[in-house]
Computed example of a mutant assay.
Amino acid sequence: MATQDRAVLEASGESTLEKATAKAKESIEQFLNVSLNIAVTGKTGSGKSSFVNAFRELNDNDDEAAPTGVTETTMEPTEYKHPTMPNVKIWNLPGIGSPNFKAKKYLKDVKFKIYDFFIILTSERLTEHDIMLAKEIRKQKKHFYFVRSKIDIDISSEQRKKTFNEQKVLYTIREDCQKNLNDLGEVFLISSFYLGKYDFEKLVNTLIDELPFHKQSVLLQAWPVCSAATLEKKIKFFKAISWAVSLASAGVAVIPVPGTSVACDAALALLFLSRCYYAFGLDDRSLKRLSEKVNIPLLEYRAKSKFCDAIQKKAVTTIHVGAAIVTMSSIADLVSLFPGVGSVFAAGLSFASTQYLLTEGIKELAKTAKLIRTEAGLDTIY
């Protein structure tokens, strides 16, 4: 057995090259093309639009943001695509019980079957309509999650009291919500403006655990980097799938990639690292938003990364993440970062050198993302 074949089998955990190739093909299909449809519902003023915007890492006043307001702004199910992963869609649904969406016909009217799971938002107590909707969703054997929003506002109001204790306030809110739930599930306390606080991290962990396996990686890529733990999960995911991308990109086996021609398979390496770049929050939009939030210029830290620089040049002009058709020349900048590797790529893009390139890329992009979070004061230990 060739050394290269042994490396492929070891990385894939399979016993034959044929099985490794089949596993790689399935992994790449899921990585690139699996769709995810998330439904967000709740009564008027519960913070649906702000949650949709937070998930898409947009401010409420951004051009592509879902409209917010104190009156019902969502008159029909409205689809919002993720900015960097168009196969991920989050749907802002009208509140149940509103004039045009009566409770008894709600699920039919909002096209229930197209959603993978439901987020039921409330900024106060759970209503009778919320409970009824949850029971009906359970009957249809789909998942739902109760989310108590605007926790930051509640905390701010309670701080005026001399006896204020944040943990006690959170406990009281949680207990009040749980009283109405019985055995329907737990409630997650969040603020759409402070994703690193409260239960946002717990929510994503629960979603990932309960989604079908082929949907988990899609959600993880699209979910905002709200904590160091979330970033670590993303890093672990990209490391775990890199072998499959290396197998396809290196030409060890011909793996047709949906949306690309066989001639473009080598460029999958660039597409993969670009996905890392966006998932780790290193793109212009994410960094500018974070810079404004913490009032610290952060783009300069990204400029120190050779991989970020190479990806940025190509991502802006030739990559549309999720549906990329790029030429082999697109990886030239990345290959040039490693003396001696370029000739191997030119000779046939071997698995080992491709895997090395991707591993080093993940490592440097992750290091840059961690440094930026530390400089922003989000993580105390780097």
Rank of each mutant, 00 (worst) to 15 (best):
E210T: 05
S343W: 10
V40D: 05
Y106I: 13
I319S: 11
K48W: 11
A24V: 00
D62Q: 00
E175W: 05
A11E: 04
F101G: 08
A229W: 10
N165V: 01
M1N: 09
F146A: 03
P77M: 02
F146H: 00
A303V: 08
P339Q: 09
S123D: 07
S343K: 08
T127N: 04
L93S: 06
E232P: 14
V8S: 15
G95F: 11
K48L: 12
S242F: 03
G251T: 02
I114L: 05
F101I: 08
Y194A: 11
L282R: 07
E72D: 09
K25L: 03
F117A: 02
L298P: 00
L17P: 09
Y171D: 13
T71V: 14
Q312D: 15
V34K: 13
I311P: 07
T41C: 13
K370E: 15
K142H: 05
R289W: 14
T163V: 11
D183S: 14
G361H: 10
C226E: 14
Q178T: 05
A248V: 07
V252N: 10
D209E: 15
S50C: 04
G251K: 04
C226A: 12
K19S: 09
E79V: 12
Q159R: 15
Q355F: 01
F164V: 04
T78H: 03
I325T: 13
V70W: 00
W223M: 12
T16F: 10
I208D: 04
V204Q: 10
G377K: 02
A2E: 14
L298K: 03
L184W: 15
Q167Y: 14
L32T: 02
F338I: 02
D309H: 12
Q216E: 13
E166G: 08
G45L: 03
Q140V: 07
Q4V: 11
P99L: 04
Y382I: 09
W91R: 15
K239E: 05
V88H: 11
K234A: 03
I28Y: 06
I119W: 07
K135A: 04
A65D: 06
K293I: 10
L126W: 00
Y198E: 13
N165P: 03
L170N: 03
Y80G: 04
V218P: 05
V316I: 14
A263T: 10
K111L: 15
A228C: 11
S156M: 11
A332L: 12
V147A: 03
K102W: 03
K161S: 15
D60F: 06
P94S: 03
A2K: 13
F307D: 11
V110E: 09
D60I: 09
K142L: 09
S336D: 14
E364D: 14
A20R: 00
F164A: 00
